[in-house]
Amino acid sequence: MARIIVVTSGKGGVGKTTTSASISTGLARRGHKTVVIDFDVGLRNLDLIMNCERRVVYDFVNVIQGDASLNQALIRDKRVESLYILPASQTREKEALTKEGVEKILNELSQTFDYIVCDSPAGIEHGAQMALYYADEAIVVTNPEVSSVRDSDRILGILQSKSRRAELGHDPVKEHLLVTRYNPERVERGEMLSVADVEEILAIPLLGVIPESQVVLNASNQGTPVILEDQTDAGQAYDDAVARLLGEEREHRFMTLQKKGFFARMFKG
């Protein structure tokens, strides 16, 4: 049985796809057979971030509608073994994702994979609800900014009332907070909500904090999941998050301002 993890946020542009790419890559890199599914029907993007956009032949909706088999649609990652991508359709309508269709595919994937990561579209409409419906765990991606925090809270409400686990009265979906685009310098100046503020408002356990970093844009420019940039703060922060997701205890990093030493200040200003 696979563990189903949805990456969701409500608000767009906060880093869901970046996070889905890195979390799935991180899980696979640790030896867990992982598939990452793009639920954003109509606006496919995960393929670009994972650098497999030219290898897409069949998509999620083709499989749901029986036009292709799962094996035909799954794209095997070239960097990390045991990582597969199921791309979204670009042309079909959002309603092509049905509860029954999604369930059938998740069940089939469940037989051979350890983890299924669902990259949710923005919003709280049909596509987002399909992405979270079957989830066992949810990574709620939040920027330290008012509209993102508010939307995250709405998504938490939907997880608690409209997921399959909620409807059947099973154990609730396990919620994780991932704060992205975090800028400790601005937090220190009182210009940005701190991680503690966001945690206090949303009241769910913190999975990780990804610092705002040029590295993230560089990585997506090249189609490399940022977690593979081992030497960078954002890459390491994602690796920590994956470790915590798997139950490892790791101290949070990159949350405070890196104090510059005397010489650094003198020469780099």
Binding site: R150, D153, G157, G190, M192, I201
Partner: peptide, 24 residues
């Protein structure tokens, strides 16, 4: 002194989120 806008953001969020949870 904590004169930044972050504290305003936090206060506004606490109020609106509590209100919306109540309705939910």
């Amino acid at each position: 002194k904590n004169t930044g806008s972050a504290s305003v953001a936090k206060e506004r969020l606490q109020i609106i989120v509590a209100h919306e949870r109540g309705k939910r």
